[in-house]
Write a protein that binds this DNA or RNA. Structure first.
Lengths: 248, 248
DNA sequence: TTTATTTGTGTTATCCTTACACAAAGGTAA
DNA sequence: TTACCTTTGTGTAAGGATAACACAAATAAA
């Protein structure tokens, strides 16, 4: 079962030492690599995901994540940013690697390894070219079947987001620059799937000290308008609270 | 300003549909893939990492993580378990995928993508074959330089462990089956790099309800012996506490 | 038998979380 | 213009978790 049988590898000896790294690497099996981006947006008080129709005929009735293969000498983070840029035109989005999926049968054309990225963007900031591949926002809740193993990937990224949004203020990436506290709470409630107490929610966010009061107010609401805030990313970065306590 | 999401079905054209999935995949660039395991152990009140001497001549003075390339049609989790089994003889260890590293220059022999796995094992359970490649436990704190980008990988896995151990009782995988509360606290203190209050630590762990009192006591300690406990993994799994509250 | 070391235990003060109600602002409809 | 509806903005009290802290009992070693 073992590939290398190198007797005695002690520092003084040369037995089994490999001189030609290129040759070594050339002997490895090679696998096609893709990145798949799970692009979340928030609109109409719902968490949305950006999907396209699959290229493949066998998946022609299914929706698919935005992906592409990694080019030669392209780091995967770069590849993910490239996909985002190509599809949405945006390059200032939040992006993070989530997990690598490697089931040998996950792609019908043979083994393809994919690295899933999660990205968050503000829907209002961009008009999609929806004609190409029928690029559309879908309500996360409504998505049932997808091409490949993309439903599994989506679900893992959603779970990742739920967790991450409680530890870091990622949610702000999904909101417009200026937002009301109600919008912020709606976002949290939509992502976590729970209701929260309005007063305690406010208290919590004000006690962290990175909401900037813009002095402006909501417009076009059929009730008392709320104040608009901005998120102070810098202040958050410098003040990150050290956390203690065991959580299980 | 609202982007509409589409309901379930696909409408529209067939342009650009690909029929031959195999041909599509064959056209992708291919990359050699490895898994690298960061194997943590706990001994002598220190967090240890299992390392070998690199195969490559250019790294002959450096230590390296335990890795191997992924075989054809082998899922990466499998590959990681295989590496563990081959190197330590164990197959009942804790193992989790942490992150994928893809910098094009990370391997001197050309592009190699690696998926890092973190694994935790109880040092006492296994006698290593230390001759082969000078397999040895190293104190995490003492490790400075490593082959490839393995120091970066190690540091990321350590950060991952620090975080994970606060959210899930992974630490128990590093301890012998029966352990004293002092040993448990030493483990936490070593991994987190902090001192904890002994009484509060006890209170915390007793209040979670999954320490089984074995009725046995420590032996061969030059002071009052402590009780020995076992961890009830099943009880933990069924009682996982639902967590609330925003943490940043 | 004395000494040194470590175990095992409880209380209080502080902080954080939760639950909960009412007046003021603005829009809408009569 | 007024009455009504909806949503904003605010404080407090109870309960639970965390953090700080000291002393008696058990054992081995001297």
């Amino acid at each position: 079962m073992k590939n290398k049988s190198v007797p005695g590898g002690l520092s003084g000896q040369n037995a089994g030492v490999i001189k030609d790294a290129q040759k070594l690497v050339a002997s490895y099996p090679r696998v096609p690599i893709t990145v798949d981006c799970v692009i979340f947006g928030f609109d109409d008080n719902e968490l949305k995901v950006l999907l396209i129709r699959s290229d493949l005929e066998m998946f022609k009735d299914k929706w698919s994540l935005l992906g592409d293969f990694a080019m030669d000498n392209e780091e995967l983070d770069e590849a993910a940013y490239r996909v985002l840029k190509e599809r949405t035109g945006m390059d200032d989005v939040y992006l993070e690697q989530v997990k690598t999926f490697s089931h040998p049968m996950r792609h019908p054309g043979g083994r393809v390894l994919t690295v899933a990225y999660c990205s968050l963007l503000n829907i209002e900031h961009h008009q999609l070219k929806t004609i190409e591949h029928e690029l559309h926002w879908h309500s996360r809740q409504g998505i049932k079947e997808m091409a490949f193993d993309h439903k599994v990937i989506l679900d893992e990224c959603y779970a990742w987001l739920q967790k991450r949004i409680m530890e870091h203020p990622l949610g702000f990436n999904l909101l417009p620059e200026k937002f009301s506290l109600r919008e912020l709470q709606n976002l949290y409630e939509a992502i976590l799937g729970i209701k929260m107490d309005r007063r305690n929610f406010r208290k919590k966010f004000f006690s962290m000290d990175f909401l900037i009061d813009t002095g402006e107010f909501e417009d076009d609401v059929p009730h008392r308008p709320g104040k608009l805030y901005q998120f102070n990313f810098q202040k958050y970065e410098s003040n990150k609270r050290r956390w203690t306590g065991i959580d299980f």
